[in-house]
Design a binder for these strands. Sequence first.
DNA 1: GGGAGAATTCCG
DNA 2: GGAATTCTCCCA
Length: 766
Amino acid sequence: MSKQQSLFDDAPAEWELDAQSQRLVATVVLGEGATGEYDYLVPEALSDRERGEYFLEVGRRVRVPFGRSNRKVVGYCVALETKLVDAARLKSVAEVIDAHALLSPAMLRLTRWMADYYLCKWGEVLEAVVPAGVRLLAGTRKVTLLAVPEDVRETMGQLKLGSPQQRKALDYLAGCGRTLTTAQLADAVGCTAGPIKQLLKKGLIESHEKRVRSGEFDEITAERESPLVLNEDQQRAFDAINAALESGEARGMVLFGVTGSGKTEVYLQAIERVVGYGRQAIVLVPEISLTPQTVRRFRARFDGVAVLHSHQSHVERHREWQRIARGEVQVVVGARSAVFAPTPNLGLIVVDEEHESSFKQDSSPRYHARDVAWQRAQAEEIPLVLGSATPSLESWYKTEQSEFARLDLPSRVSNRPLPDVVTVDLRDSAHTKFSRGAISRPLHQAMVAALRDQGQVILLLNRRGFSTHVQCPACGYVAECPACEMSLTFHRQESILRCHYCDYHEPPPVNCPDCKSPAIRYGGMGTQKLEAEVLARFPEHTCERMDTDSMRKAGSHQQVLDRFSKGEIDILLGTQMIAKGLDFPNVTLVGVINADTALHLPDFRAGERTFQLVAQVAGRTGRGEKGGRVLVQTLSPEHMAIRAAVRHDFEMFAEEDLTTRRQLGYPPFGSMIRILVRGPAEETARAVAEGLAERLKREVTGEEGIRIMGPAAAAIPKLRDHYRFQIQLQAPTLDPLRSAVQRATTRWKVPDGVFLAVDVDPWDMM
DNA sequence: GGGAGAATTCCG
DNA sequence: GGAATTCTCCCA
C-alpha cells in the first residue's frame, strides 16, 4: 500500500498559504482502479446530518469525480477531517451512496491490515469484505416521498393556486400527517401526477428520497433446547474461555478435542455468556459443514442467529448484514467471509475445524479467515477459540510457544473409546492376489462381518469418476485434456471423458486415436468403479455413492445422509465429503481405500493433509454402543503420518512433522510467499516469471536467510490453456519477503495476457 | 519539425 | 484502471 502522497513536496511557499483554508475533507479509497488515497472536499449539503440520511461519515461509500475526465467512480470514505487545505486544488464529493456506514473504523483498520499483509489493494479488500448484495443495496428500492414544508404550511390558506386539483392535493398532503409518494397522493386525491408536479415546481411541496425494503421476510425459528451438562474436560475448557472473556483481553485458544468430544457444546455455552454481556459472537465453520442442522443447533439455543454463506442470494445476504449491523443478532454463523460480519459489539470469535482449507480464500485477497479472525480479536480485545481434532501445525506451534492457550478435550463424550485403526499393506501379495479390485481381502472380510452384525460401512476414496486414466496398451497413448494436459477421467454414468481441472469433456474413444488399436484400457480406481465393485461383492446390500458428481442437485446431499441415518443405506462410499462431521452411531466400519493419494504430492503439507483425512474419517465410526473399526489401505504403512493416524496420536504427528519443517524452514518456522505467473503463451509466461525472479533476487541481495526458488513449472503446469510457472519465496520472517515482492512488482507492468497471483502464506501449492 | 505509436505518469 | 502527457523513433 503506497503512502499517502502530499500535494506539495516541500512546505508551501508564502503565496500559496493565502489559498489555504479550513475545510471538511474526506479521504477516499476507490473500490477499483487506482490505488492510493484521495482527498475530496465535502459540500455543505453532505456534511450536515440534519439534512437527511445521506450525510457523509467514515465507512460509507461515495461517488467522486476522478481523473482528468472527471468520470464518476465509487469510493469508500476512510477518513473525515477538517483541515487546512488549498480548496482550489481539491474536487468535491458528488454523492453519498449509503444511508449507513458499511464499515466501522475498526473494520477499516482491519481491511487496511489485510491489504498490507496480503499484498493487495485496499479497495480490493473493501470490495471483498462488503458482500455484493450489500453494495448493490439488494432488496431495497428508492422512493420519492412528498411533504409540505413548514413555512408553506403556515401560509397555505392564503395561497393562490393554479387549479382546484392542486389545492386538493396540497390540502390532503398537509392534512394526512405523513409523507406520501406521488402515486399515493394522486390516488388519494383522484388526480394525475400533473398537478403534483406543478406544486413541486413552485416549491409548495418538497420531496426527498428514501430507500425502503421491498419485501418482508419470515423469521426462522427452531425448537428450543437447553444446555447440556458439561463433563469435567468440557467444564475446564469452558472455564478457561470464560476467564478470557472476563479478562477483556485478546486471547487465542486452541480447543483440541478428538471427534465426538463435544466441542460444539463448549462453544454454545461460551456464546451464552457472551450474549449475557450484551455482546455478539461470530462462529466460522467450513463451507461444507454449514448445513441446516448446524444452523438449527444454534437457532435452538439463541434468539437472533444470522447465517452468512456464499450460496445465499444478494437479497438474503443484504438482509442478514443489516440485521447484524442493527444489533438484532446475537450469533453469526457463517463460512470464511462471516469473519467480516458488522457486529456492533463483538465479544467472541470461534473458528470451528480451524485446519480446514476452505478458510483460505483462493482468489485475491487471498486471506485466511483464521488469521484475519485473530487480527480482529486483537483489535477488539476479545478471545478467539480455534477448535479442531487435528489443528493446523501453525496453530499448534502457537500453543507450544504459549502464544495461544491449549484446551484439551481428550475423551469422547460418555467415554466411548476411539475406534481401532489398522493398516492393510497393499504391497503384501496375499492381499493383492485376492482380487484386482480396490477392496483387499481384510477389508472385504471386515465388511462382511460388519454388515452381518447389522452395522453400517463407510468407504473413502478420494477420486471421482470411474477410471482415472484411459490408456492404449499397444502404443501407450493416454487421453489428455487439450487445455490442461492432465489425464482425463472416464465417467461411466454419462459415458464421457472428463477433465477434473476444467470443464472439458469428450466422448470416450472406440479405437486408440494414435494406433487404431481397439484395446483401450480403463485404468485407475474412481468412486464409480468402487461402487460397481461393492455392488458386485455385496449384491444383497444397499450402497450409495456420495461425491460432487452424484450430489449435483441441491438437497441430494442431505437426502442421502437422512437415508443413511435411518439405516436405509448399508454402505456409503464417496470422496472426502463423507469424511467430515457426520455423526452416525451405527457406523461400525470405515475403510480408507487408498490413504496415499495425497501423501506424495509436492507439497510440504502433504503429510498433514493425509493425517487429517485419515483421522477425520476414522472419527466417523465408534460413536455408538457397538464401537467401530477402521481399515486403512496403504502402500506406505510405515509413513509417519499414517502410523500416527493409526494410533490417534496427533501429538506424535505434530512433533515429527514440526521437526522436519524446522529443518527446512517451512511454516510455521518461516514464512512463505508463492507467486504464480500464468498466460496462454508458454514462452511469454516463462519469460515474465524469469524476469520477476531476477528482480526479486536483485531486491534481496545482501539480505540474510531469504530463499527464492524458481521459476519452475507449477505442479499443474497447464490449466485451462494457461501455462503456469511459480516462484517460491521463503524467509524466517515475512516482512522482508513482503517488501521485496512489493519493491519488485510496483511500477512493473506485466505484458497483456500474463497474470500474476501473489499468495502470502499459501495453502495450495499446486 | 512533426506525426504516430509506445511508454510513462498521474489521478486529490 | 484509464486518460493525458511525454518519450522515441522515423521520415522529410
